[in-house]
């Protein structure tokens, strides 16, 4: 296995940063997310980031096109987007799975989303194996392997004092070859993963939810929800967006930005009618979408077991507990 001692990781990233935009997980009291590498940064190898990496392909706010108004004429012009080749280093299995979900949404079913695709196509994914699940992790229950991320170009293993790199795609192969001089070939066995605190039995859940639209469980589950967007904005798979504009005098631009199905105005139509008028309908739609609708449409769940929503929900909503409730519900 190609290895590098942890104390030399910065050197590797610094060298890579000459050829790529390199994104790494960092953690401080104020920030816990993927940021562009720069000298002096400390890469966080312990635990996952609070913010998911989805914003790398799907920024919270993204300009789409600009316009100029002159009397009754309106000029429309695209923004020229200069997308660099980039490497995401240290992405976990759960977040790799979320990229698979986002790929399905943005790149399939008739339309390709250009904004997403231009960034996604230029990205190499260097995944980092998880050996110590956090209290709120449950990816294993969803069939993921915390040590081997599917879709990665390179899988990195924590070997204690060193990191081991294994290429999984020709592009990954090429990347490792490029920086071969920094690696040492060592016979190493990756660490095993420790036990998970949380579990969720998802077998049969989508099929069961198909019969639970009118079930009283939604009154109970939605009761304590505050209707904020913390879960959706921290979720690596939530991808709903709004399109809005910014106008100053005679010019402006259109942008898209994250939106959240928990917000009251999300489905409110011009004229005031709202098909999901209360938090019961919104909470139901959220969990139905994650655990049933997405499965029906794309063949997989829209949850990766990263546990961010459980960790940060202001009122302790716990999707594993909700899955358990669904499992036990009488239909």
């Amino acid at each position: 296995m190609k290895t590098i001692v942890k104390s030399r990781l910065a050197e590797l990233l610094q060298t890579m940063a000459q050829d790529f935009r390199v994104l790494v997980p960092v953690k401080s009291e104020t920030v816990s997310q993927f940021v562009p590498w720069q000298e002096g940064l400390t890469v966080n190898l312990e635990g996952n980031t609070v913010l998911p990496p989805k914003d790398i392909f799907f920024p919270q706010t993204e300009k789409m096109y600009k316009f100029k108004v002159k009397g009754s004429s309106v000029d429309i012009e695209e923004f020229a987007e200069d997308v660099q080749k980039q490497v995401i280093f240290g992405i976990r299995s759960c977040d790799m799975q979320s990229i698979d979900c986002l790929d399905k949404v943005f790149l399939t079913k008739g339309y390709e989303d250009t904004f997403y695709k231009t960034k996604r196509d230029k990205t190499l994914l260097v995944a980092l194996a998880c050996t110590k699940p956090q209290d709120t992790c449950f990816c294993e229950s969803l069939g993921l392997n915390p040590l081997e991320a599917s879709g990665a170009d390179i899988q990195v293993y924590d070997l204690g004092d060193a990191l081991g790199f294994v290429a999984k795609t020709p592009e990954g192969e090429e990347l490792l070859a490029k920086y071969a001089s920094l690696f040492t070939e060592v016979n190493a066995v990756p660490q095993k993963v420790e036990g998970f605190n949380l579990k969720a039995e998802v077998a049969g859940i989508p099929e069961k939810l198909a019969k639970m639209f009118d079930h009283p469980i939604w009154d109970e589950v939605s009761q304590k929800c505050l209707g904020c967007g913390a879960c959706a904005y921290l979720c690596p798979t939530c991808h709903c967006f709004d399109i809005s504009g910014n106008v100053k005098a005679d010019q402006g631009y259109k942008f898209r930005c994250w939106d959240c199905c928990m917000f009251s105005e999300y489905t409110r139509m011009a004229g005031g009618h709202n098909p999901r008028p209360s938090k019961k309908e919104r909470v139901r739609n959220r969990f139905m979408h994650k655990l049933y609708y997405f499965q029906e449409r794309y063949g997989q769940l829209l949850c990766t077991g990263c546990g961010r929503c459980i960790a940060k929900c202001p009122v302790g909503m716990d999707i594993t507990a909700i899955i358990e409730k669904i499992k036990e519900a009488e239909v």
């Binding site: 104020t30 913010l51 904020c228 967007g229 959240c260 917000f263 202001p314």
Partner: peptide
Amino acid sequence: TEQFSRCIRCFACRNV
């Protein structure tokens, strides 16, 4: 400025 630049506008503060 530094503090508010981080806000993701999830409205958890308001809703709680």
